[in-house]
């Protein structure tokens, strides 16, 4: 069971990291969700794996499952849920304001093929010179 849990956490993290590194907001949100699933599983496993033992005191119990990770996971689930909702709303707002679902608000390489970036304002703008990025060189004042 240890191997199975470890592999599931590993696969979830790998998928999550891959998706977060994609440049559009929807995969990023999906990636964050997968990462939070992996975290929850990991926190559970850190209380040691135990089957069929109670988490609360009982006189006839042979052993106990650690109740603290379960409380931690509960907190982590609530926080991750709220954060995911916030990230989705923010992604929608960014899509509405910038006209692109790219995380930078514009597609860096204009792609003429109709399958990507058709009709999006961001994709039609020429890429800005690299030297200006991140140093306040671009655009008008916010």
């Amino acid at each position: 069971m240890e191997l199975l849990i470890a592999l599931s956490i590993g696969v979830l993290v790998a998928c999550g990291v891959y998706l977060v590194l994609r440049a559009s907001t929807f995969p990023v949100v999906m990636g964050l969700t997968l990462l939070s699933y992996a975290t929850n599983l990991f926190l559970f496993a850190m209380g040691r794996l135990a089957i069929g033992v109670p988490a609360i005191v009982r006189p006839d119990a042979a052993g106990y499952a650690d109740p603290l990770p379960q409380a931690l996971v509960l907190t982590a689930i609530v926080i991750a849920f709220g954060m995911t909702a916030f990230a989705i709303v923010l992604a929608l707002k960014a899509r509405g304001e910038t006209g692109s679902d790219h995380v930078d608000g514009r597609t860096p390489h204009p792609n003429p093929s109709p399958s990507r970036g058709e009709g999006l304002r961001g994709s039609l703008a020429p890429p800005r010179p690299l030297r200006e990025r991140g140093l306040g060189g671009e655009g008008e004042s916010p």
């Binding site: 977060v20 907001t25 990023v28 964050l32 916030f86 990230a87 923010l90 992604a91 707002k93 960014a94 304001e97 910038t98 995380v103 930078d104 608000g105 655009g139 916010p142």
Partner: peptide, 11 residues
Amino acid sequence: QRTVAGLHYVV
């Protein structure tokens, strides 16, 4: 601009 910077910060 603020929304894009905010999105990066949040993620």
